[in-house]
Design a protein around this nucleic acid. Structure first.
Lengths: 112, 112
DNA sequence: TGACAATATTACTAATTAGCAATATTATGT
DNA sequence: ACATAATATTGCTAATTAGTAATATTGTCA
């Protein structure tokens, strides 16, 4: 069995997907969409970003296939296209929490 | 139970970690370190990036706590600090593969 | 049709950063 | 001490992009 390393093209694709999750505003949008689909206005209210920025980031996430779009009259509702992203976020959050706990334990042991 | 959304600070931390994985060169370094630790020179040889850039990216990954560093005489060996990152990459790769397969199936059904 | 509300787009600025060549640092062997 | 090899750092440029205000588009209702 060979080494099976990703080639340049594949690395770029993986990097691009991670890049989509590398912005706080986009993560905020995604976590707000975790339970239910929301209109643009609702997302604007739920976050503290401007409408134009939210619209832009929604477009980016939609173009990348992470979000679905559905028009309902005057409103446009966005929803998660692939819940896998929450698995990613859960892993990262778990790691950060674990790191923080070790850090805390270290500090405690020093202060003793 | 409350909504339990991450706050701005936490979102930033998560985004930062994803950002580390959002560069092909860094991903390439990480996948080369998956099986064993390597010296800087070995990593330079394994990738097609220049020494100065590899050194810089190694520094970034090390500062972020994703890599461990160990001097052995004249060489400096880097290794993975937390294998969790490979879980992240596996998830992403799985998604990309699945997406590509659906795409392929779609094309096939159209061409029929 | 016209006013209005929701969303998207445009044009721009400021900030970040990958990559590079050149140079500096650090360790080894003689 | 000196030459050499390995790695790190510095100074720089080009490219990307988040965020914003202003404007355009699209749909609804009267």
């Amino acid at each position: 069995m060979a080494k099976s390393l990703l080639d340049q093209h594949q690395l770029k694709a993986v990097a691009k997907l991670f890049g989509l999750l590398a912005e706080p505003t986009r993560l905020d949008i995604l976590q707000n969409l975790k339970k239910t689909s929301l209109s643009v206005g609702q997302i604007v209210d739920a976050t503290n970003a401007k409408q134009s920025n939210i619209s832009k980031q929604l477009g980016i996430l939609h173009d990348a296939g992470l979000l679905k779009r559905e028009r309902q009259g005057n409103l446009i509702f966005y929803s998660i296209a692939d819940p896998m992203i929450f698995d990613l976020c859960a892993l990262v959050c778990g790691k950060l929490r674990k790191d923080a706990e070790s850090q805390l334990a270290l500090i405690r042991s020093l202060g003793k």
